[in-house]
Design a protein around this nucleic acid. Structure first.
Lengths: 169, 169
DNA sequence: TTTTTTGCAAATCGTTTGCACGCTG
DNA sequence: CAGCGTGCAAACGATTTGCAAAAAA
């Protein structure tokens, strides 16, 4: 198999335990690749894409195929340990789901910074809207695109205008 | 050129005038293809994708290439006559921007119905959040996925759960 | 006539898949 | 040892692009 837990971790982390339970429940196998990917995901502290994750696994010495990275990210999303977002780009972005608290995103069109926020009143309002439309909400995604405080003044107007038109939201 | 305005329209519609002005302003050319695409867009009454639009143009006798359809949709988005959304799928969806009023979407994970809504208080709340984060909002996208009134009871639990995991939001 | 647009087909790019072999349970 | 999982490379599907021919200004 050739892939070890990075570093000297001996005991199972919370997320390892959860993933193991998930796999067992579905009669899927607990492989070294799957655990290595899980751990690589939880080593990151912000959003990333499949390509970057694949690259970082390669750097750590393991040589896990892109296909397996995609397949495993998929499992992790199903299992609730990873969240999948687009952040306005046409390819998928992921983030470790450390707590269970969902959040939404402010995305800077100039520097690509992502600011997370959580507002219970926003969630409540959405539930209210759904109730009114007799709709049962199961998932939602709110992304606000614009300029962060640092970019407010120094952004190229027409470049930004063009980016807005190209957003994949 | 071989492409005519569908039907017997003689005078310019509001959106034709706007598109013409936009093109002139950018020193771009007013071609039959561009006008045919604009009109095909405004003939539709809901969301569509580039492929469907291309097909409907073919049916009307014009034979406009997919490339031109994409290029023109792009112009229409820049010009504000068309809105681009993803609605959770991995390919782009479009809709004619008939009025200037933006709206958000409820999307049924079972039957794919799209319900539009506009809530000023939701917009206000978002502005408030942005102000608090010193963020200048320019565009936003809120999509709520779930089950519509008709599908609430008859939806296959695991199929839906799987769709949520695959959403491209 | 000059400049932009078009259609075509090839190129991209992220993602998925079929298959033969390898590992887990 | 019976299945699942993996890597590989090919397949995919939406979108984009280079280029020569065609149309608009």
């Amino acid at each position: 198999m050739g892939i070890h837990n990075a570093g000297s971790r001996k005991s199972h982390t919370k997320e390892e335990l959860r993933f193991e339970g998930f796999l067992r429940g579905k009669k899927l196998k607990l492989t070294g690749e799957r655990m290595a990917i899980l751990n690589a995901v939880f080593l990151r502290n912000s959003h990333f894409d499949a390509e970057a994750l694949h690259a970082s696994l390669r750097d750590k010495g393991g040589d896990i195929s892109r296909a397996t990275v995609y397949r495993t990210l998929d499992l992790l999303v199903q299992c609730g340990l990873v969240r999948k977002n687009s952040l306005g780009s046409s390819h998928a972005n992921y983030e470790a789901a450390r707590d269970n608290e969902h959040h939404d995103h402010l995305i800077c069109l100039n520097c690509n910074k992502v600011i997370e926020f959580y507002r219970p009143d926003l969630e409540t309002l959405q539930d209210e809207i759904c109730k009114q439309k007799a709709f049962k909400p199961m998932h939602h995604s709110l992304q606000i695109f614009g300029l962060c405080n640092e970019c407010k003044d120094k952004a190229d107007e027409s470049k930004i205008r063009n980016r807005v038109a190209q957003l994949h939201t």
